[in-house]
Design a protein around this nucleic acid. Sequence first.
RNA 1: GCCGAAGUGGCGGAAUUGGUAGACGCGCUGGACUCAAAAUCCAGUCUGGCUUAAACCAGGUGCCGGUUCGAGUCCGGCCUUCGGUACCA
Length: 821
Amino acid sequence: MKYPFQEVESKWQKFWEGKKIYKTDLSKTDKKLYCLVMFIYPSAAKMHIGHWYNYGPTDSYARFKKLQGFNVFEPIGYDAFGLPAENYAIKTGVHPQDSTLKNIADIKEMVKRMGGMYDWDSELMTCTPDYYKWNQWLFLQLYKKGLAYRKNAPVNWCPSCQTVLAREQVLSDGGCERCNTTVEQKNLTQWFFKITDYADELLDGLNKIDWPEKTKLMQTNWIGKSIGTEVEFSVEGYDEKIRVFTTRPDTLFGVTYVVFAPEKEIVQKITKPEFKADVDKYIESIKSLTEIDRTSATKEKTGVSTGAYVINPINGERVPIWIADYVLATYGTGMVMAVPGHDERDFEFAKKFGLPIRKVILQPNTKVEDELKEAYTEIGTMINSGKYNGLRSDLGIEKISKDLEAEGVGRNTINYRLRDWLISRQRYWGTPIPIIHCQRCGEVPVPEDQLPVVLPYNVNFKPDGGSPLASNEEFVNVKCHMCGSEARRDADTMDTFVDSSWYYLRYLNPKFTDGMFDTNLANNWTPVDIYVGGAEHAVMHLLYARFIHKFLRDIGLVNSDEPFAKLVHQGTITSQGAKMSKSKGNVVDPNSFIESYGSDVFRMYLMFMGPYELGGDWSDKGIVGVDRFVQRTYALFNAHKNDAKENPSKEKYGLNDFNEVEKSVYRKVNQTLEKVRTEIEHFRFNTGVAALMELLNELKSLEECRKDLQTYALERFAVMISPLAPHLGEECWNLLGNEKSLFENPLCFDVDQNALSVDNVTIVVQINGKVRSRIDMQVNSSDVDVKRTVFADEKVKLYTDGKQLLKEIYVPNKIYNIVVK
RNA sequence: GCCGAAGUGGCGGAAUUGGUAGACGCGCUGGACUCAAAAUCCAGUCUGGCUUAAACCAGGUGCCGGUUCGAGUCCGGCCUUCGGUACCA
């Protein structure tokens, strides 16, 4: 009889739902385990393969932990605000709220069909006022502490999405993270969250969390902490002093010019009249360049002289001021000292414009008079550096830095690459920013008791350059809370990454009305024990959430430093070598597989495909293998109906109770218990499934075993397979005659360590490193016995007779290596 | 350019601290069942050599070299692919 997956799956789904087996009692914190998967972005009505790959295995992990007796909390929800819904609305006229709610309903049905053990009482969606109210409240707390502020700055503008983007949301090729359109630079007044205040802590905290090294490294690089010195130069002919940031004060004697970012205001002031025309022309010319062109490291360097000079504080030398676009206005002071001898960029620039190159660091094993063919950027001996000559340059860094500080012309400084998080968006489908702009009072926060600022349903969300909310008079026009005069609401909405920065806290009680979330529960249940999601969030969501968590801790709402104790990235499933996308037409629809094989088979196949962290290219070639495995499993249990009732097994047996076949089965069952446990524990589902397949193969000899051992084996098999194929597992368990559901009464069998021991081992005999023979010995035979047996072996004799014995290495129970000449 | 990960049969992929390379599955080949097919079951399946066959021998984990009794695993130098990053001073 074929496994009737439709019937079985819906039966157990109804059972679980009816018994509320998914429900977690959060008041019990003993053996608590918060297993979280990144919530769903409901931009389409269907769950695609990527969702299944993310949620299925994670749910299996959660179920496995539940069977082990953990009090598992596994919630799910919807990251419901965002651009795709709004773009869809622009195209079709369907309101984002309507399409989103519809999508969520469809997705929810699919998630249930998958057999996820989600706590539906904790379900949340970010687009409801009772959720986003707390985004606004969070904003106000940040605002109070000066961590939410508005400034005019050059920002990334996506002309297609018609909104600004945070820097994290611009791809490395300059494209928009959502739509790939090349972003433009614009000077706009925008809202920022001051994540940079937490830069150091975000860096240090990485040491305390169990995350993939690669992800931590990405965050480290993104934060880009750089320790250096700010050196003050005076501008010749002006009272003005300028400061440059350098990590190499040891090369200060090698400065032959300085470079300002062209957009620095001071450029206008210090440029000599006869250079003005060229300078203006240059500034104009770079305006037409895109950010990518401008910052491309492969682009040839350009720049012009201003005709002005600064004085080098270390030696009083006069060096020219140039402007060049390779100096970024937004990093450090926007001005750098140029040391062409020891900096690649400066070298290239100096070569091109004929500026002097001075060697001040001597490369070991080279001569002072050797010409520099390229910039030497490593440590060496200081030369041409006055009283510092002969000093090792890394020591020179400290020494000069100290001396500059003593002279009052320098100080130690730390710079970060990290910028503040730009959170305002000129779009409709998001959280309104709780600020009003009063003609008299200026920026006024909406009082907390007036939250939420509700997102109006009726707006013109067509993109015409401005924020859609701005055209909704009813929304925008308000009286100032301070003075009562006419005011306008801020018409921007928040980046949806604000929503996802704290949702894991809200899950604990999404109906909580006394605050953002229940602090008691949060203190007991966070940090999240295991968090699973895509690596593409490494420097976006995963950085933002850490920042917000630390802020919430600082205002006393949580007591932990980090939101996610352990992080696992699932790999990406591609299709024909490319990311699945509608535009490429390579999207694989999981539904057809669910319909022909059922969700257990599909889930298990996704796990069996390969290492979870690796993902891979989709192919359905092997799914029949998993299906066969399921069919054989079902057939086996069907042939053993009520075995557990009729022939109950003991908890444990002695190996002496068995004949050889029984011993072998008993051992294999226990080896598999051990194997499956460690594999699932480490998210190595592929080898976990393989171990169960091996066991099933071994169980071919089950009929030759005594009846109670059959029960012993089958019960354990059912329990092991149930996290991976939950419906099948329950069904098998039930077929054996067990009355209580596995997930209703979690159960986990211990490994009989005695069964893991073996009587006999095969010892491989190598001669000069080549395998020449194998001998079977009793386990832990004495070295003498092993040696005697080895040398009695015909093949060994063949290779050793008449040869000189040089060496013997015996690795007990494994290998016997003989070296002969 | 820099940083990181990975290269193993026809395919997806296994291989504790260096210790029998190719688990498990797909595919393929042969057989059983069948009037026949599908499904299922059984056997075989890294490559080459020699064999009716088995046994045996040689080679083999991207390439070149090294360490070691022994290397997919460690070290040095390359090549390729995929992620991240892009003049951050």
